[in-house]
Amino acid sequence: MAGSRPVLIVDDDETLRTLLVEQLRLEGEFEPVEASSVAEATKLVDNADAHFDAILLDVTLPDGDGRDFCAELRRRGIRMPIIILTGSDDEADVVRGLDAGANDYVAKPFRIAELLARLRAQMRIFENSEDAVFAIGPYVFRPSAKLLQEPTRNRRIRLTEKEAAILKFLYRAGQQPVPRQVLLNEVWGYNAAVTTHTLETHIYRLRQKIEPNPTSACLLLTEGGGYRLDPAGTPLATTQPVRV
């Protein structure tokens, strides 16, 4: 797995949180973060350095109703998938949760495998929706539109399908280097006719579009026999040209 995807678990049941954390970390696919109350969850979501790909949200919390918290997040424009966990599967409760903006509703007790399957499904749907937005350096990245927007300069950068796919996969890798062959397989599939030269050409063109100084990359880095995306855009210590 190239990188783990952060998931916020909001539940006051410590035993259940521990179980969910263990299961989500099992194969390295997810990186769970815990909160036991609305207040804790709010601080985590508001943290400028935090990013979550999804939220697992209990209804009954010590300082509020999870559905009200869900509705508040939606009012604030937060669009990542939210799956509500509840001890009731009454139709009225389900409808209220969905009306609050939840993507799915899972009644306790639930099977972990089913919950993870639903979580993955909601993430796939979100990634291909118009709502999927990621911050990369000075840009707002909209994968579905194949577009980078730079609000401070009122500029738009159009990406090709492959360029958008490269950025999306590297972003999901969580700043971990992705080997060239892995990136080739993910973006082009197992096509014997496609070589690493093809990937390197796309990386070169992508850097020409997005880097302030393409010869000294600070966003799309060459590292560990592959590439790494630094969404914060931290400048490299060296001013030497970056090898593709």
Rank of each mutant, 00 (worst) to 15 (best):
A2Q: 06
V10E: 02
L16V: 03
L16F: 14
T18I: 10
L20V: 00
L20G: 04
V21N: 07
L24V: 08
L24K: 05
E27H: 14
G28R: 00
G28M: 00
A35W: 02
A39Q: 00
A39T: 14
D49Q: 14
A54S: 10
I55N: 03
I55Q: 00
L61N: 03
G64I: 04
R76C: 02
R76F: 06
R79K: 13
M80N: 01
G97E: 00
D99C: 05
D104A: 14
V106Q: 11
R111V: 12
R111E: 09
L116V: 13
A117M: 06
L119M: 06
R120T: 09
E127D: 14
E130R: 14
F141K: 09
E150D: 05
T152G: 07
R156I: 00
R158T: 03
E161Q: 15
L167D: 01
R172C: 00
R172A: 12
A173F: 00
P177L: 09
V178T: 11
Q181L: 06
L183E: 04
V187F: 03
A193C: 08
A193Q: 10
T196V: 09
E200W: 11
R207F: 10
N213E: 13
T222H: 09
R228T: 11
L229S: 02
G233F: 13
Q240G: 04
P241E: 12
